[in-house]
């Protein structure tokens, strides 16, 4: 119990660490981009940045059509934050996304963007009319479904990462107990069990959740926009 509760206390540091890592990455990319000769192909960290941007742009173009440029930066930064956050378990930190405040905040920001873009592209009249769709009696249900979307996005991410973190914490606890019990067992068992668990819970599930969160953001925003001619 105390071990699981400590997940919440220890994730504060990881939030700051994640933000610092991303800021450093962006500053380095910015400095290198200024010096870069645009005729040469990018190398190293610039190539990584270009791959991330191209990946995000492709996701956005697929769902949003000609309006992808407005939303691609947000989706990219969301994806970068979640990427570093979910992979921070490999550094021995508690992933920030295992603290419910972080995913819910991301979900709420996405919800706000959804509504603002809907107002911008549909006009305020059509936006308000959308709540009375298809019959006026559906108003409370529509409002409720709008409120639930960001929370469900946040809870999905939180549940995935948190369940992985809980399993990892419990197994580390058990391994610690075994270590106290027979000392050499820790040397033999730990290096074989923990890398596999990190590969599953941090790398595999973490990356899938990043992808899913980005795709869902784009799809929910696209659902709010009017159809393209």
């Amino acid at each position: 119990m105390d071990e699981i509760l400590s997940i919440y206390k220890s994730s504060n540091f990881a939030i700051i660490a994640t933000t610092i890592i991303i800021l450093t990455f962006i500053i380095i990319v910015g400095i290198k981009l200024n010096k870069h000769d645009s005729n040469k192909p990018p190398k190293g960290i610039l190539l990584l940045a270009e791959m991330l941007v191209t990946f995000t742009n492709n996701i956005c173009k697929e769902a949003l059509g000609s309006r992808w440029k407005k939303f691609a930066p947000y989706v990219l930064f969301e994806g970068m934050f979640l990427l570093v956050a979910n992979l921070s378990g490999l550094l021995g930190l508690t992933p920030p996304t295992a603290n419910i405040c972080v995913p819910i905040a991301l979900g709420i920001v996405t919800g706000v963007i959804m509504h603002i873009s809907s107002i911008k592209y549909n006009g305020i009249k059509a936006y308000l009319k959308g709540f009375l769709d298809p019959i006026p009696i559906m108003l409370p249900i529509n409002i409720f479904s709008e409120l639930v979307t960001p929370i469900s996005m946040g809870l999905r991410l939180f549940g995935n990462i948190f369940s992985g973190t809980v399993v990892m914490t419990l197994i580390y606890y058990v391994l610690g107990q075994i270590w106290l019990w027979i000392v050499p067992a820790g040397y033999i068992i730990t290096p074989f069990i923990t890398p596999i668990l990190h590969a599953i819970f941090d790398v595999f599930l973490g990356l899938i959740q990043v992808y899913v969160f980005m795709i869902l953001t784009v799809i929910f925003i696209a659902g709010k926009l009017p159809d393209e001619e």
């Binding site: 469900s152 369940s163 899938i208």
Partner: peptide, 27 residues
Amino acid sequence: RSTMIVGQAVAETAGIYGLIVAILLIF
């Protein structure tokens, strides 16, 4: 692949809600 992963993620939501309810009950 992308359609399948998104569909699976949405289907997973119900299970995740159950997990959250369980965690809340225990805490």
